[in-house]
């Protein structure tokens, strides 16, 4: 178990882009006037000729990304998650996902921990709307190390992808990059037999904390890091349902259509067991500090514990 160390995923992303830029001469990076926030500015300083600031025009940025990719470039396009997904969704659908172009949309400021900027800047629906697009890989890394693994894997994989990172520094879940990361392959963080918590993003660490609390009460909990929302590792979910008989999902996202929705779809169709979703309860939040918001809107270890107990109480009924 790694010690509690806070590392910024977007800084990791920015640094990695520079490394990859040296290796891949056809790698181009785009941003929409947020390069100092998304950290693509590090690439911009190193490779100004392969960086295009599209200005405050996210829809245009996605189209430009598609045109570059259609010309043989590996394109990384970054902005805040709320704009990359919602603002430019049809552009992603028609100009990127449908023609399967090699565009990697790496969105920062995902989720409620975007904090003080409030509802307009907190992407709480992006996983749902992006995972509904055919051909688009959707990944929510658990920490900075997994972010590095994700970006390195994506640069080698042709095709469109959406990656969701956070604004604040987040605790490390992993100690090193060698833990067997593979796109589309979920990872078991802790073994257990009474219940499984399936989480993504920052909720992986929070779910591991919850698992410890439950363990203290004698409940054996399996925690799964479902970093890839699409293509979803259905096999891992079904196995967990069969072996533990109850599922909790945990995401820093609306409970509508995101990880919880995706897991529920698999469970309902394959091996129905109780499912309880932890996440934003189909409402808009507000401005506040990240931790305050997680607490007020029910996305803490305590909330995961409560959900687990509810799922357990429904088990076998």
């Amino acid at each position: 178990m790694a010690e509690e160390k806070l590392v910024s995923s977007r800084e990791t992303y920015g640094k990695l882009l520079v490394e990859l830029g040296k290796e891949y001469k056809n790698l181009v990076v785009l941003d929409a006037d947020l390069s100092s926030s998304t950290k693509t500015c590090t690439f911009c300083r190193e490779f100004p000729d392969r960086f295009i600031n599209c200005g405050v025009a996210e829809q245009d940025m996605i189209g430009v990304a598609a045109g570059l990719a259609a010309s043989g470039k590996i394109v990384f396009a970054s902005t805040f998650a709320v704009f990359a997904s919602g603002r430019a969704w049809d552009q992603v659908r028609v100009s990127v996902a449908y023609p399967r172009l090699n565009v990697k949309i790496v969105a920062t400021h995902g989720g409620i921990t975007t904090g003080e900027d409030g509802v307009t800047h907190q992407a709480m629906e992006d996983i749902a709307i992006m995972r509904s697009l055919p051909n688009l890989t959707v990944i929510v890394p658990a920490d900075a190390i997994e972010t590095a693994n994700t970006i390195k894997a994506l640069v080698k994989t042709h095709g469109p992808a959406y990656v969701r990172l956070n604004r604040p520094k987040v605790p490390l879940v992993y100690e090193s990059e060698n833990y067997g990361f593979k796109i589309g392959k979920a990872l078991e963080m802790t073994g257990g037999k009474d219940l499984t918590i399936i989480a993504c993003g920052i909720m992986v660490k929070i779910s591991m904390d919850a698992a410890k609390l439950l363990q203290n009460e004698g409940i054996s909990v399996r925690v799964i890091n479902m970093h890839t929302i699409k293509p979803l590792d259905a096999e891992m979910i079904i196995k967990a349902a069969k072996e533990t008989g109850a599922i909790v999902t945990a995401e820093e996202h609306s409970i509508v259509g995101g990880l919880g929705g995706a897991v529920a779809e698999v469970i309902c169709e394959n091996y129905p067991v109780p499912v309880v979703r932890v996440g934003m309860k189909d409402m808009f939040a507000e401005s506040g500090k990240p931790q305050e918001l997680l607490e007020k809107y029910g996305m803490t270890a305590k909330d995961v514990v409560a959900a687990a107990k509810l799922a357990l109480s429904r088990k076998g009924k």
Binding site: V28, D49, G63, V64, G67, D90, Q91, Y98, P99
Partner: peptide, 22 residues
């Protein structure tokens, strides 16, 4: 290029023109 949802092709053309320049 794939097209049909209006307004998108010109951005793509801009991307292609930038690629040609690079």
């Amino acid at each position: 290029m794939t097209s049909g949802s209006l307004g998108q092709g010109l951005s793509v053309a801009v991307g292609m023109a930038l690629a040609n320049r690079m």
